[in-house]
Design a protein around this nucleic acid. Structure first.
Lengths: 122, 122
DNA sequence: CAAAAGTATGAATACCTGTTCATGTGTTAT
DNA sequence: ATAACACATGAACAGGTATTCATACTTTTG
């Protein structure tokens, strides 16, 4: 029997889930993840993969990096489960595994585009 | 006068705003920001400030860091406009400037809590 | 089978980053 | 005024990180 109930978000956008200082472990995991997104070339790689599944070779050409460098970075992105891959002959096709990342991109992009409301140094 | 209109998100969660590879400049700005969130101690500081406005001194005690180290980090967080401050006598009270950050925390926290669907190395 | 293509990996190096230590600046108290 | 307090800052040092280079591995092609 069909139940016509719309999915309800568990919490609205107002959510502020922090009730105490992050433990060192949790903070470390957070930092590790965000740190992964703390490199410009990795962002270029991710944005390229957001467009299409791609070979390492083409990726390297697209972002103007050495294939070796790209390969190294892909390993890191794999570790963070941000990209997936599938082998096809002697090629390896990489793709964005978690498109959720692009939401982070949007959110932060908005933050960065906010005007500088006069922030001086103390 | 109070206007009882619920805020409406401009775009649903499906948004995927990337249509081309990020420019080096844009990627750099992204990386710079995410890199700021790529340090465990900064996360602990932010989470502490999410609880309450705090002096540097108390902050240092709360996250178990040197006041100097905290001060250094606060400067970085200030630069990224993540925290604000107000002077009060010889104290300086810091606070979370952009609570939006905590949404990032929630989102990524969910990502990290996803089970490992067997991701082997190629 | 040998050569070539595509990718991965390890070591080395240059660069960046965060903490500590010492010191400086501004404010309150005696 | 002088001492004490709160915070900021610069230099120095240690640890981490990303690229390059050389090489190895795997699959395809001749």
């Amino acid at each position: 029997m069909e139940v016509p109930v719309a999915k309800v978000d568990p919490l609205p956008d107002v959510a502020l889930p922090i009730q105490q200082i992050l433990s060192v472990e949790k903070a470390q995991r957070m930092a590790e993840f965000f740190g992964t997104l703390g490199d410009p070339n990795r962002w270029r790689i991710l944005s390229a993969l957001a467009l299409a599944e791609m070979r390492v070779r083409d990726l390297a050409a697209a972002v103007e990096m050495t294939e070796s460098a790209v390969s190294h970075q892909l390993r890191i992105l794999r570790t963070m489960r941000l990209v997936g891959y599938r082998k096809q002959g002697r090629n390896v096709l990489y793709s964005l595994k978690d498109h959720h990342i692009m939401n982070l991109y949007r959110d932060v992009s908005e933050h960065l585009d906010e005007p500088d409301d006069g922030v001086a140094s103390p």
